Simulated assay, not measured.
Amino acid sequence: MQTLLNTPTSRHQVKGSVFLGFLVPMLEFSATLKRLQKEHSKARHIVYAYRHLKDNTIEEALHEDREPRNSTKPLIDILRREDLINVAIFVVRYFGGVLLGVGGLMKAYGLALQLCLEQAQLEPFVVPMQICEWVGLGALEALKARGLKYGVQVVVKETQSTGAWVDLIGAPHLLEKALGH
């Protein structure tokens, strides 16, 4: 399995319709969806697909946003074929006045993802682990900042007068960086 290190985008046009692709790490899913809905409020469709590891099970979703059934299926098929995990693809469509049919839409949506993948920086996926650490209060904000920088989730569990117990969740090599080792 592989996961994404950057956030590539694509743009192409088919018979007047413009397709904008956005490939993002799953951690950015909600924020990206809100941003795209705001920035592209005049777009006809914003479709997405994702593959995400949750509780040792791969969750997949495909949202077609009123497009014909299965017209966006290539998005999930390509994510599977490329063995990508914890990744989401959004495609914004501005309708150009010509109906493309299900086959034309399938090609157009698949191309949006393929164009993003040409720019994608991928790395092998490592199953995240969770550790619990005691952190002095003076070091807590710095740990949170390093966690954000390295993609490690920092959850404060219990705060006391001198420090806090925190759970750190992430890939083992990133946990070491967040902890400053």
Results as ranks from 00 to 15, higher is better:
Met1Tyr: 12
Thr3Glu: 00
Leu4Thr: 04
Leu4Pro: 13
Thr9Asn: 10
Ser17Ile: 01
Ser17Gly: 09
Leu20Val: 00
Gly21His: 03
Leu23Asp: 04
Phe29Pro: 14
Phe29Asn: 01
Ser30Arg: 10
Leu33Gly: 07
Arg35Pro: 10
Arg35Gly: 10
Gln37Lys: 12
Lys38Ser: 12
Val47Phe: 11
Tyr48Lys: 04
His52Phe: 06
Leu53Glu: 08
Asp55Thr: 10
Glu59Gly: 00
Glu60Cys: 11
Glu60Pro: 05
Asn70Val: 03
Thr72Cys: 07
Pro74Val: 09
Ile76Glu: 05
Asp77Trp: 11
Ile78Cys: 02
Leu79Gln: 06
Arg80His: 01
Asp83Cys: 12
Ala88Arg: 09
Ala88Gly: 03
Phe95Met: 01
Gly96Cys: 03
Gly96Trp: 11
Gly97His: 13
Gly97Asp: 05
Leu99His: 13
Val102Tyr: 00
Tyr109His: 00
Tyr109Arg: 12
Leu111Asp: 11
Cys116Thr: 06
Glu123Leu: 13
Phe125Ile: 01
Val126Gln: 12
Val126Ala: 02
Val126Ser: 13
Met129His: 14
Met129Ile: 14
Ile131Tyr: 03
Trp134Met: 14
Gly136Leu: 12
Leu137Gly: 02
Leu137Val: 00
Gly138Lys: 13
Glu141Gln: 13
Ala145Arg: 08
Gly147Thr: 05
Lys149Arg: 12
Val154Trp: 07
Val155Tyr: 00
Lys157Ile: 04
Lys157Ser: 08
Thr159Asn: 10
Thr159Ala: 00
Gln160Trp: 12
Val166Asn: 09
Leu168Tyr: 02
Pro172Glu: 02
Pro172Ile: 05
Gly180Met: 05
Gly180Ile: 09
